[in-house]
């Protein structure tokens, strides 16, 4: 069923232009959303803005459970629902909007590899700090995650989530790491990104790609979110070219609407 259905869906997607009423769903911005979800959501918003596709951001308490993959964010376009950056990039590509068409094969391979680097190290580190560092989990993650729910349910859901993330960390071999080692990993990842970026305005020179959107989403969120300790942000701040990269994207794509 799947192959035929997929071909059908992509044909449909190609046939319809991007509608004006496209929406992006994420958890409540002020009280609920966590660092990692906010980073992923910001990455998708940055990507859509780079493509010039209008999207309205809606905050819903249950967006995690509305999403088809259980992950945040997801977009609702016409009669279709797509979640996470990777599938959204493919979806917009089917509609004829792509940022990576100008790249050659090697560059595209490198772009994909660096995107996985961000997912594999930055995103995992964010999850680790949120749920496996006891201070952060108790003071920030659990209360925020469960803020919309009343007493017994809030505890159950928060601990369930924490338990799930911790099991994942154990499965990928991060369970035995200390917080310091995780910060080291973040530094290593930023070092790699900083090296790759060099003095260029974007990762692949003049034009932004989905990699730029993803890196911006994560770094900008890390820089602007208050946690129990500022260590994470400090690690990112030591790379000046990454800082100016974030500022450049913020000014180019977010300033006009957010101000």
């Amino acid at each position: 069923m799947s192959l035929a259905a997929e071909a059908f869906v992509s044909q449909l997607a190609a046939a319809e232009p991007w509608p004006e009423n496209a929406t992006l769903y994420q958890p409540l911005k002020e009280d609920q959303i966590l660092l990692s979800d906010h980073a992923s959501s910001l990455a998708v918003q940055a990507y859509l803005r780079m493509c010039g596709l209008p999207v309205q951001v809606l905050c819903r308490v249950n967006s995690e459970f509305m999403s088809p993959s259980g992950k945040i964010p997801f977009i609702h376009v016409g009669n279709q629902v797509v979640s996470e950056l990777g599938p959204i990039v493919q979806f917009t590509k089917a509609k004829g909007h792509s940022l990576s068409d100008g790249l050659d094969d090697v560059q595209r391979a490198e772009m994909k590899a660096y995107m996985e680097l961000v997912n594999n190290m930055l995103l995992t580190a964010e999850l680790y700090i949120q749920w496996c560092d006891d201070a952060t989990a108790a003071e920030i993650s659990r209360p925020r995650y469960s803020s919309p729910y009343s007493w017994p349910l809030s505890k159950i859901l928060a601990y369930q989530k924490q338990w799930e993330v911790r099991r994942k960390m154990n499965a990928i071999g991060w369970g035995g790491k200390t917080l310091q080692q995780v910060y080291e990993d973040v530094s290593q990842c930023c070092q790699a990104l900083s090296q790759r970026l060099g003095m260029q305005p974007y990762f692949f020179n003049k034009q932004p790609t989905e990699l730029d959107a993803l890196v911006f989403g994560h770094l900008f969120t890390i820089l602007t979110t208050r946690l129990t300790s500022s260590e994470l942000a400090e690690r990112v701040k030591s790379y000046s070219n990454l800082l100016s990269f974030c500022r450049r994207i913020e000014q180019t794509y977010f300033e006009d609407k957010s101000s």
């Binding site: 996985e116 594999n120 190290m121 070092q191 090296q195």
Partner: peptide
């Protein structure tokens, strides 16, 4: 070089994820 080291890290992540 530093850039090659960065590329290594990226491709190792790519394999771990995909």
């Amino acid at each position: 070089s530093a850039k090659e080291g960065a590329d290594s890290l990226a491709f190792i992540s790519l394999m771990e994820e995909k």
